[in-house]
Structures are given as C-alpha cells and as structure tokens.
Simulated assay, not measured.
Amino acid sequence: MTTERIGPPAVAGEREMLRAFLDYHRATLALKTDGLSDEDLRRRSMPPSTLSLLGLVRHMAEVERAWFRRVINGEDIPLVWSDQGDFQVAYDTRTATRAEAFAAWRTEVEHARRIEREAASLDVTAYAAKWEEDVSLRMVMLHLIHEYARHNGHADFLREAIDGTVGA
C-alpha cells in the first residue's frame, strides 16, 4: 500500500492551513511504515527503549483520541490501549499488528476530522484535566502538529535502521 501525502498550501486561511499541516504529518507517519512487515514495524530502536514504528502509530491513535474525543468533544471513553492514561502502554507491541494499529489510528483520525469540521470555530474550548485548564481547538490542532512532527523525526531514524530508507 502506498500512502499519498499532499503538501500543505503556501497560502490559505488559518483553519485550512492547520488542517493541511495536520493531515500532512499524519500522512508522513503512514508513509514511514509503507512496505514493512509486522515484524519490521515491531522492531525496537535500541534497548532499553521500547520505541518502534508500530508503537508510534498506536501512540498517535491514543493522542488523537485523547485530545479530540476526550477533551474537545467531552466523550467519557477510555484510551484505546490503556484506560489509565499511560501512553507508554501503546509502545508494547510484542503481539501488535499493522492491521489493528492502523485500524485504530484511522478510526481516531476520522473522529478527529469530524469533530474539527463540526466545531463552530477554532476558538471552541474545553477543559483538559491533564493540564488543569481550558484549551482551544486551535491549540489542540497545533499541539497535534507538534506531536506528529516530533514523532515523525523518530520515525525517520526507525525506518532508516530497518531498511536504509531515508527522506520524505
């Protein structure tokens, strides 16, 4: 499966620009996993770290769910892999598969897109218990862009260690 990644526009309104950059970074994470087996995706970076490409996909499913569904939408639901709020649980990929990780991630991305589209504006706010303050949808989108960008850097190194693929 080949991932399509569309670069963000150079000129656009604020909301369109945020959407485009977030989708660009989402596609980048998927691109870093193209053509790899479950075993490759479970390969850890270096002991004692448990970081793997599959763990990053699972982690980002948790992040999408936490910020868009639990915070902005106020849904009273557990995280995908941990109801304790421990994102590190997502990194335990000993028996994880591409199919289950990407199904969960794509589901959460679609929920996030729907929640963002239905929001009246980027100024919509909700209480983030972890931060003990209200946050805006704008801040959540910027935070997710930051989170993806940081982890896509990790994905670059992980992919290069697996098969030498660099760039993109």
Rank of each mutant, 00 (worst) to 15 (best):
T2A: 13
T2V: 12
E4R: 14
I6N: 14
I6G: 05
G7H: 13
V11Q: 14
G13N: 14
E14C: 02
R15A: 07
R15W: 04
R15P: 07
L18G: 04
R19Q: 14
A20C: 13
F21C: 12
F21R: 15
L22A: 12
L22Q: 01
R26N: 14
T28H: 10
T28F: 07
T28W: 11
T28E: 09
L29I: 01
A30V: 10
K32G: 06
T33L: 05
D34I: 10
S37A: 06
D38M: 06
D40P: 00
L41Q: 12
L41F: 01
R43A: 11
R43D: 11
M46E: 09
M46C: 06
P48V: 02
S49E: 00
T50C: 01
T50F: 00
L51S: 04
L51H: 02
L51Y: 00
G55V: 00
L56C: 04
R58S: 09
A61C: 10
E62C: 05
E62P: 07
R65G: 05
A66T: 10
F68C: 09
R69M: 06
R69K: 12
V71C: 10
N73D: 15
G74A: 15
P78E: 02
L79Q: 15
V80G: 01
V80W: 02
W81C: 07
S82H: 11
Q84E: 13
D86A: 08
D86N: 13
D86K: 11
V89N: 09
V89M: 13
T95K: 13
R98T: 10
A99C: 02
A99K: 15
E100S: 11
A103P: 01
A104W: 03
A104S: 13
W105D: 05
R106P: 00
R106M: 08
E108F: 00
E110Q: 14
A112K: 04
A112L: 05
A112D: 02
R113C: 01
R114C: 02
I115A: 00
E116G: 00
R117D: 04
V124R: 10
A126Y: 06
K130W: 15
W131P: 08
E132N: 15
E133T: 15
S136M: 08
S136L: 12
R138K: 14
V140L: 12
M141P: 01
L142D: 08
H143R: 12
H143D: 03
E147N: 07
Y148T: 07
A149Y: 02
R150Q: 11
N152V: 05
N152A: 07
G153T: 03
H154T: 02
D156M: 04
L158W: 04
L158R: 05
E160A: 13
D163A: 13
D163E: 10
D163P: 04
T165E: 10
V166E: 09
G167M: 09
A168Y: 14
A168P: 05
